[in-house]
Design a protein around this nucleic acid. Structure first.
Length: 444
RNA sequence: GGAGAGGUGGCAGAGUGGUCGAAUGCGUCGGUCUCGAAAACCGAUAUACCUUCACGGGUAUCGAGGGUUCGAAUCCCUCCCUCUCCGCCA
């Protein structure tokens, strides 16, 4: 099968950052420090200067060529021979400049690629998760008068999942869902999508694979070496298994210009998610907390810069509503700068209480919502056409994403919080229309 | 997978080697007219990058990449995509 080519449009995507870096050099450097990222910011300016220099030379040479062409028609035969000769020389020069330009652009792109997005002024500053701030707590942790089981025991005793079969068929960290495990997953999907459609989100089922260019535009690094790569690549193609529908939903509008009056656009996408979990070997090996494949309902929004802060709060509110609706206790974390990753400008995590986790229960991340401002839009070339025309180019949209329901993690929280002394699990009320029972009991 | 047709500006749609960044229509914006509106008329209306304090100037772009030529939307090659028909299949 032939490899699909990267489109020319996408190829130059990261170039556009250079001017911003140049204009905010100190702020960008400080941000890298806050984010605990080592990046040669000065190299960007240096390489950008070089790029401009070469481009000017190339453009001037091309202009000369065009002049020759313009004068060709009224030239005498002798003059024409001369002009052809001259044009040939210029052509060689242009080829040289273009080659240099391509080389510098590759370097510039590489230098820009490691620079993270700027950070929200209110995001807590800190280099690791210790600096994260809890900004809200919801629900009441269940008080058990028995020793609560973890989700692995519950899955096994209630026959909701088969981990051995998963390992046999696909390897460690794969699983089969069975019985009410299946019904619960489907119910969670229905619950989330139904709720979001009612809120005006457009439902989408996305591809489970996407091209490397799209992954990179969203901020993933599929070209990393196999040891550190977070996504699966498909051999002999330029495709990856997606790690989240954020990838496909964001890519959906790549290279488009959207009229301002069509913003914001809110989508709710359903997909499978595939993660190599490179670097997580040995961690969370039990059960379905950290797996290579799971199902997720994801929110995604495209909007103007003026709208993104409010939509971020809106998405966070929806995530809270979903977990409040499920009756699961959780807390909300305002992620600190060092923990934001590359694309996020600000990020909130919802951490659900998981009574079976660790020693006597622990919080575990169940959702995450990020405002990526124009970081992804620049790379994917998603612009909007403002109502009021102003000078200088079309601005980029802002993109936001947020988990509605990550099925495996939600499943853990449900099973562990809703378990009963007799080993059964009560089905959260909002899921009963789809599960069709109030309680999951052991099979005979 | 096979055969055919086609990919041009916000949209529709001309353009088959030389002022073509691109006719025309529609749309949009501004103006005239009007008490106001419609209609009519006049004008403006692609994007990116480089350059300039600014006016402006330059380069590139007609699906993508490469080639022929002094010169390519127009000719040649490769690829991608869309449509129609056939085959196959959930």
């Amino acid at each position: 099968m032939p490899l699909a080519r990267a489109s020319g449009e996408l190829r130059n995507r990261i170039m556009l950052d250079a001017a911003f870096v140049r204009d905010h050099l100190d702020a960008v450097k400080a941000n890298c420090t806050n984010r605990n990222v080592t990046a040669d910011v000065d190299a960007v300016v240096r390489l950008d200067d070089e790029r401009k220099r070469i481009q000017r030379l190339a453009d001037e040479t091309k202009a000369k060529q065009n002049q020759i062409t313009d004068g060709f028609k009224k030239a005498t035969p002798e003059e024409r021979t001369k002009l052809k000769e001259e044009s040939g020389k210029l052509k060689e020069q242009v080829a040289g400049f273009d080659a240099q330009l391509a080389e510098v652009e590759v370097k510039l792109r590489a230098a820009l690629a490691v620079i993270p997005n700027m950070s929200h002024p209110n995001a807590p500053v800190g280099t690791d998760s210790a600096a994260n701030v809890t900004v809200g707590e919801f629900g009441t942790k269940p008080a058990f008068d028995f020793k609560p089981k973890d989700h692995v025991d519950l899955c096994t005793s209630l026959a909701l999942a088969d981990f051995e079969a998963g390992t046999k068929v696909a390897g460690q960290k794969f699983y089969f869902l069975k019985n009410e495990g299946v019904l619960l997953e489907l119910a969670l999907v229905q619950y989330a999508i139904t709720k979001l459609v009612a809120k005006g989100f457009t439902p989408v089922i996305t591809p489970d694979l996407a091209k490397v260019d799209i992954l990179e535009g969203i901020g993933f690094m599929p070209r990393d070496n196999a040891e550190t790569r977070q996504v699966y690549t498909v051999a002999d193609t330029d495709l990856c298994l997606i790690a989240t529908a954020e990838i496909t939903l964001g890519g959906m509008l790549a290279e488009q210009t959207i009229p301002e009056d069509q913003l914001p656009q809110r989508y709710v996408g359903l997909s499978h998610c595939f993660r190599t979990e490179a670097g997580a070997a040995g961690r969370d090996t039990r059960g379905i907390y950290r797996v290579h494949q799971f199902t997720k309902v994801e929110m995604f929004a495209f909007c103007t810069p003026a709208q993104s802060d409010a939509i971020h709060e809106e998405i966070r509110g929806i995530e809270e509503e979903i977990f409040n609706g499920l009756g699961i206790p959780f807390r909300v974390i305002d992620t600190c700068t060092g923990d934001l990753g590359g694309p996020a400008y600000r990020k909130y995590d919802l951490e659900a209480w998981m009574p079976g986790r660790g020693n006597g229960g622990e919080y575990g991340e169940v959702t995450s919502t990020s405002n990526c401002t124009d970081y992804q839009a620049r790379r994917l070339k998603i612009r909007y056409r403002p109502k009021e025309k102003k000078g200088g180019g079309l601005p980029f949209v802002h993109t936001l994403n947020g988990t509605a329901v990550a099925c495996t993690r939600a499943l853990i929280a449900i099973l562990e919080n809703y378990q009963q002394a007799d080993g059964s699990v009560v089905v959260p009320e909002v899921l009963r229309p789809w599960v069709n029972k109030e309680r999951i009991v052991a099979k005979k």
